[in-house]
Simulated assay, not measured.
Amino acid sequence: MITKIGQEGNVLGYEVAGKLTEQEYHDLYRELRAVIAEYGSVSVLGRLPDDSLPGMGLSAIDDRLRFAREHLTDIDRAAVVGGNRVAEWVTRASDTMTPIELRHFHAGAEQQAWDWLRRARPV
């Protein structure tokens, strides 16, 4: 399930838990595209409320890769808050492979994550 938890200009936050559906990804990408169209870029916070990584079907993985290819330079920063050591490792590994600044924050540091995202680019 993807639940929007906040937005300030081009900085959006979502809580992501459980298995995600293709429709949830579709709705998320539509919202992110609208913010990119309005502001020129977007920064995203993803809160993981438990110790697992969200699951997704194969079609959702394909949609995720397509969105990333299309908007790689439109995403300034992404913060992952919470999750387990695997989430932290995946975030760090992804940071080295994309032009997007990615950072993992422990669950108690969510406010720091929001502050870091807001400093990405003035809106």
Rank of each mutant, 00 (worst) to 15 (best):
T98A: 04
L45S: 01
Q7M: 07
I36P: 00
L45R: 07
D51F: 12
R33N: 13
R121C: 10
R92G: 12
T91G: 01
E70G: 11
D51Q: 14
D62F: 11
E31S: 12
V42R: 00
K4D: 01
L117E: 08
F67R: 12
V16C: 14
Y29M: 11
G46N: 14
A87G: 07
Y29E: 11
L58E: 09
E38N: 07
E8D: 14
I100S: 02
R118T: 07
W116Y: 05
A78N: 09
A60I: 05
L48Q: 07
I5V: 10
P122Y: 05
H104L: 06
W114K: 02
W114N: 01
W89M: 14
P99I: 05
R103T: 04
E88D: 06
Q23N: 10
G83V: 08
S52R: 15
N84H: 03
E15V: 05
L28Y: 02
W89H: 06
E88P: 00
N10Q: 10
G6Y: 02
T96C: 05
G13F: 01
E22H: 13
G6L: 02
V81P: 01
R30W: 02
D50V: 10
L117Q: 08
A113K: 01
L48E: 05
R69I: 13
H106A: 15
F67K: 13
I61H: 13
G6M: 04
Y29H: 11
Q7F: 02
T96L: 14
A37V: 03
K4G: 06
V16S: 11
A113L: 05
R30N: 09
V86Y: 06
R119A: 15
A37I: 02
N10K: 13
T96S: 12
G40D: 00
I100H: 01
R103E: 09
E22R: 12
K4I: 03
E70Y: 02
E15S: 15
V35F: 00
A93E: 05
A17D: 11
G83L: 08
P122G: 12
S43W: 02
M97C: 10
L20T: 08
V44I: 15
A34P: 00
L72Q: 13
V16E: 03
G46I: 09
V90G: 00
H26S: 15
G57L: 08
A17S: 15
R121D: 08
K19G: 14
A78T: 11
R119T: 12
L20W: 01
A60M: 04
D62R: 14
D27L: 12
